[in-house]
């Protein structure tokens, strides 16, 4: 595979990552949301493997396998199991103002391109153009966490942000050193354990996973 093709495949996959991010931003059904998240993880994993092959950085294969097992298999499985246990499989969330959210998302993409311009100029890597997409994915994940009011959706937004960060590391520097990648994966695993417990606590205490119910802690006058 020559560099030209590799760069094209890389951009192509980046486009899909961004597409799934936008999809998640407005998807109402929690079930479909998890599917989108799984796809995003798969695109990332394939992308990482290809970059690792072309750039000759073999530790990226480990990152790729880690992403595959964690974000394509384990996390979606945990989320599935949780929503089955909590009987919220069919739940549909009301998402307010979809066009507006989409427009903000687009603005964030443009902003990301603007912000990462200095990095693109200095970088010599074939993946340099996708750093902006990675940052956009992080920002869209953030936007999703702000606009959505369901605990599961917020967590998926959080994990999508993490995907974006992983993508950024691959794009900017062909991945972080292995010890860091492993540590981050461990943190995500612990986080998964914690939000699993949380879902149960929130569900039993508030009888719903809608975080709108959690509004007791406010500044009183």
């Amino acid at each position: 595979m020559d560099l030209q093709t590799a760069a094209q495949i890389n951009s192509f996959l980046a486009a899909f990552v961004l597409l799934t991010a936008f999809g998640m931003l407005v998807q109402k059904r929690i079930y479909s949301l998890i599917h989108l998240f799984t796809w995003q993880g798969l695109f990332l994993s394939v992308n990482t493997a290809i970059v690792g092959y072309v750039a000759g950085r073999h530790h990226l294969y480990i990152s790729s396998i880690l992403t595959l097992s964690l974000k394509v298999i384990l996390l979606p499985y945990i989320l599935h199991a949780l929503i089955v246990r909590l009987k919220i499989r069919k739940e549909v969330e009301t998402v307010v103002n979809i066009p507006m959210t989409m427009l903000i998302g687009i603005a964030l993409v443009i902003f990301s391109y603007y912000l990462t311009a200095p990095v693109r100029e200095i970088s010599t890597l074939i993946t340099r153009s996708t750093l902006a997409v990675a940052l956009a994915t992080v920002m869209i994940g953030l936007l999703m966490m702000i606009t959505r009011k369901h605990a599961v959706t917020q967590i998926i937004g959080f994990l999508a942000m993490e995907n974006g960060l992983f993508f950024a590391a691959t794009s900017a520097t062909y991945g972080m050193p292995l010890v860091v990648e492993l540590g981050v994966a461990l943190d995500i695993l612990i986080a998964a354990f914690i939000f699993g417990i949380f879902f149960f606590h929130i569900h039993t205490t508030f009888d719903s996973l809608d975080v709108e119910h959690m509004a007791r802690l406010k500044e009183e006058d």
């Binding site: 942000m161 914690i194 508030f206």
Partner: peptide, 19 residues
């Protein structure tokens, strides 16, 4: 309820920040 709310806020906001 308030403790769970506080912890959830802590988890989400610090997670976002640290990202």
């Amino acid at each position: 309820p308030t403790a769970i709310e506080a912890a959830w806020k802590y988890f989400i906001l610090c997670g976002v920040g640290i990202a």
